[in-house]
Simulated assay, not measured.
Amino acid sequence: MNDVTFETLPQSVGRIMQGAPFVLGEEEARAFEKGTWLDRAYPEDDVPEYPETLVEGFLLLSMLDAAARLAAPTTASTMWGLNYGLDRVRFIAPVHLGQRVLSTYETLAVEPKDNGYKVLRRCTFTVEGQDRPAMVADWWSLALPRGTVERARRQP
């Protein structure tokens, strides 16, 4: 369980959280291809060397938020976050459909920003049983206290 609150966020630097393990299957891959228009861009699968079971890197990257959120749902009680961007993403080892992916999130920095904090996390996805990570991403988010939007709406 994640016991980090908005107030204690600055003290979370160095903390490592285990994300929710997940498996991507054919259904998720096809939905991703359709939602990102990859099915239109490559209608004839014109890259025969590309293994059918290989998970698209951007599909793997899109799992950052969900895997973190599913592992720590209590965070939402005191704060909410916005995607602030990525500094560095590397796809190091392949992930295939049906493989179980384990994720870790290490908080590297927490910096004041307006009414909240910019939070930098190093996110590492590894296929279960493998030593080498599949993906490493340095991901920034903007954490704001709950009620921020509501208070701003009430101001004249």
Rank of each mutant, 00 (worst) to 15 (best):
N2R: 08
T8F: 13
V13Q: 09
G14M: 11
G14C: 09
R15C: 04
G19N: 03
F22M: 15
E26V: 09
E26A: 07
E27G: 06
E27A: 15
E28S: 11
A29H: 13
A29E: 05
A31D: 13
K34D: 09
D39L: 05
Y42W: 08
Y42H: 12
P43M: 06
E44V: 00
D46T: 00
D46P: 02
V47T: 07
P48L: 01
Y50F: 10
P51D: 06
E56K: 10
G57N: 00
S62C: 03
S62Q: 03
S62E: 04
A66R: 11
A68W: 12
A68I: 02
P73G: 04
T74L: 09
T75L: 12
A76D: 13
A76Q: 12
A76I: 11
L82K: 06
D87F: 00
R88W: 01
A93T: 06
A93E: 12
H96Q: 15
R100P: 02
S103M: 12
T107K: 09
L108P: 00
A109V: 05
A109G: 05
E111V: 15
G116I: 15
C123H: 07
G129F: 14
A134N: 14
M135Y: 08
V136C: 09
D138Q: 10
W140I: 01
S141G: 10
L142H: 09
T148A: 11
R151P: 01
A152W: 05
R154N: 10
